[in-house]
Design a protein around this nucleic acid. Structure first.
Length: 718
DNA sequence: GTGCGACGATTTTAG
DNA sequence: ATCGTCGCAC
């Protein structure tokens, strides 16, 4: 068979990785070096050249997006149906395994996935039930505590706990939470993997079976694996299995959520893989790459890598020192305007920042200029309150004993079932080992409620029963539609929220009905014996969907540096490059955390294809206070020959001689000028000369503003 | 059960 | 500054 098409457009190291004959492989893939292509071609190579069955390999990623892309590219390259390929996220693959072996790990067939919000609510419930002080044991913190231990593979019994009652009580919360989940058949995200680990660890036959089946295991973004995930990979790897691991230690930016960059080194130690470095970059200019290389060079303990390109040097990296964050935003938006005026598209530009709060000023500035934008972050579709509310009813329709769903909507819309009533139900349920739904039914029958509460509860149980009897076997879309109509959620939001907010919720519910209606069950789920309903519920938890279900417009992209990982844009702005903000204050002290900030900077810089602007402001409002900061140390790590300073930082440059009377555009003190946005004003101050000169103009309506003469586009009036 | 004022926290986030 | 949560008064 002619397989040359699998290698034709690969460079030498890529080819080496794709065609490796035997043994384990570690591919250190720099930013923009074509790692997805290598993974996809490796899979194709295994299937076409080594005659590995598509069912005999497993490819693991961290996001659904990455998994979907890989799946589609493999299917396209090999011209086969994407069904049946075991390509997915750690969570997705573990979920599938657990569905097939639920009984063996002590889970009911109908186990339900808890998303973070459900988990948080449940932990809060547990803490309250234990009558612990929520100030001493905040649910958020306990959630982090529990997940951290699970990510490290520790059950409550494995947690070191001296006799200090504080620690002992933390473990007790973990234990109670876990016990509750066991009884109710609830599985949180980390549990998906921990259970799978236990399945493979404790059931020799299963371990042998899957080792035999998945001879080849490929893992993407290996630097993002946590302890649990690495342990899982090791369990799946027997003497006859082959690991193909792709990662970049320089792009490890998730240490704070449990990722272990040292897993890359451990893998190298534990499995003695061949190592291939992908260092040729197909994305950025030589200037951008050299700058990024020089920055990341300041980190110790790297596996070592140096990006290069055959492409042109490109333009210098432009550094802009703003007086404050408003001016920074104005500057960025002015450059974006120019880009668009010169024929560029808004979607080719991205503004990257360290923390979400920074987006606001850019949004305001873009809004003023009428430039469409999209802010990443915030709630995704299936995380929105109204969607979760309707989904809770759907869950009850599916399984009325779903207690988290019951708790969520028993009084939503408000129907007069207060905390007292619910507490009564919980108590009854706990005493008799019933679900909340059963307990409510019993109390209602036995006259355990007050007249008012009883009537309200009757209405709620009646609603759930009515939905169940009418739609237990209906197509998903019909069931969802009935839920939305009969629960009267829309009227509820309308009655207590501003019209625009309620309208957005209504639209989301309509979208949810559409999503349910058009849901087609994945082939693999069907194979694993799931009902379409169970599939839909699992998918809602495992793939929370897009951040904005809105139109996919041609928009400027606003996002944090973290969410920019994996993306690329012709024109990139890195904003807020200031000590304390980036690197963040909380990371400055510890060397390893500082190193991670530097990797984040490296990630940000390598997003840029053609032009990179780096901005910092001398002052900005932080928590209601004006704060002043020095430029980020990372700026100083970029060689000066690669940069162009658009305006020297005031505080960084020596004191200036007396102000010149005019800049090079010929505007002198007292000149009357017109600005596109601020209107008419008088020049009252001038600093610097040439293109970088700054003018202070006192505008009639907008007041005094500092402007850069080269960018302000001032029209001289007098 | 709802509405409002006080209080506290505020880096990054996929599944 | 701003947002979410909590407790208390209506």
């Amino acid at each position: 068979m002619d397989v040359s098409h699998l290698l034709d457009d690969l460079n030498e190291p890529q080819r080496e990785a794709v065609t490796a004959a035997d043994g384990h492989m570690l591919v250190l893939a720099g930013a923009g070096s074509g790692k997805t292509r290598v993974l996809v071609h490796r899979i194709a190579w295994l299937i076409q050249v080594h005659h590995v069955s598509p069912m005999g390999l497993m490819a693991v990623t961290f996001t659904n997006k990455a998994a979907g892309e890989m799946r589609n590219r493999v299917a396209r390259l090999l011209n086969l149906r994407p069904d049946g390929l075991w390509i997915g996220t750690f969570h997705g693959i573990c979920h599938r395994l657990l569905r097939m072996h639920a009984a063996e790990v002590g889970l009911p067939e109908t186990f339900q996935i808890l998303d973070s919000d459900d988990q948080y609510r449940l932990i809060r419930r547990v803490i309250r039930d234990m009558q612990l002080d929520e100030g001493e044991f905040p649910a958020r913190q306990m959630q982090g505590y529990i997940n951290h231990h699970k990510d490290e593979g520790r059950r409550p019994a494995d947690v070191d706990c001296f006799d200090h009652s504080f620690q002992a009580r933390q473990v007790a919360i973990y234990r109670h939470y876990q016990d509750y989940c066991e009884r109710a058949g609830l599985v949180d995200f980390a549990e998906l993997m921990l259970r799978t680990l236990e399945l493979l660890r404790d059931h020799d036959a299963r371990r042998a079976h899957y080792r035999d089946r998945f001879r080849h295991i490929l893992i993407d973004e290996f630097q993002d694996t946590n302890t649990l995930q690495y342990a899982l990979v090791r369990l799946l790897t027997g003497p006859d299995n082959r690991l193909f691991v792709v990662g970049d230690d320089d792009q490890s930016i998730y240490g704070w959520r449990g990722a272990r960059v040292e897993n890359v080194a451990h893998f190298s130690r534990d499995f003695n893989p061949a190592i291939v470095r992908l260092e040729q970059n197909y994305r950025s200019t030589a200037t951008i790459l050299e700058a990024a290389n020089r920055v990341i060079d300041h980190n110790d303990q790297r596996m070592g890598k140096n990006l290069w390109t055959e492409g042109e040097r490109g333009e210098p990296i432009r550094i802009f020192s703003a007086y404050n964050a408003d001016e920074e935003a104005d500057f960025v938006v002015a450059r974006i305007s120019e880009w668009i005026e010169q024929g560029g598209r808004p979607s080719e530009t991205a503004v990257l920042y360290r923390s979400n709060a920074q987006s606001r000023l850019f949004e305001q500035a873009l809004l003023r200029e009428d430039i469409p934008y999209r802010v990443y972050g915030g709630l995704r579709f299936f995380e929105r309150a109204e969607v979760k509310d309707a989904m809770a009813y759907l869950r009850l329709l599916h399984n009325p004993h779903d207690d988290p769903a019951f708790e969520r909507v028993v009084n939503l819309p408000a129907r007069g079932i207060g905390e007292r009533t619910v507490a009564l139900v919980r108590d009854h349920a706990r005493t008799l080992g019933l679900s909340l739904f059963q307990a409510s039914g019993e109390l209602l029958q036995g006259g355990g409620f007050t007249a008012r509460a009883g009537a309200a509860m009757r209405a709620f149980l009646g609603l759930v029963e009515a939905l169940r009897s009418a739609h237990a076997d209906s197509p998903l879309g019909e069931a969802m539609s009935a839920v939305v109509e009969q629960t009267e959620l829309v009227a509820w939001y309308q009655s207590r929220e501003p019209a625009d907010r309620a309208e957005a919720r209504e639209e989301n519910l309509a979208e949810l009905v559409r999503a349910a209606d058009s849901f087609s069950q994945p082939f693999e789920d069907e194979q694993a014996g799931l009902s379409p309903m169970a599939s839909f519920l699992a998918q809602a938890a495992l793939e929370a969907g897009e951040h904005q279900g809105e139109r996919w417009e041609d928009c400027v992209q606003l996002m944090t540096l973290h969410s920019a990982k994996g993306l690329e844009f012709p024109l990139v702005f890195m904003a807020g490059m200031e000590e304390g903000l980036f690197p963040h204050q909380k990371s400055i002290e510890e060397p390893e955390r500082l190193a991670e900030e530097r990797r984040l900077c490296y990630v940000g810089m390598t997003r840029a294809m053609r032009q990179l602007y780096i901005c910092h402001a001398e002052s900005r409002m932080l928590r209601g206070q004006t704060s002043f900061s020095r430029p980020s140390r990372f700026l100083a790590e970029i060689p000066a020959k690669l940069t162009e300073n658009l305006r020297p930082s005031l505080s960084a440059s020596p004191a200036r001689a007396s102000a010149p009377v005019a800049d090079n555009v010929g505007l002198g003190l007292g000149a009357t000028v017109r600005h596109a946005r601020f209107g008419i004003g008088t020049v009252i101050n001038i600093e610097g000369q040439g293109a970088g000169a700054r003018l202070q103009v006192n505008f009639e309506s907008a007041g005094p503003k500092w402007l850069v003469s080269a960018y302000a586009n001032l029209e001289r009036l007098a």
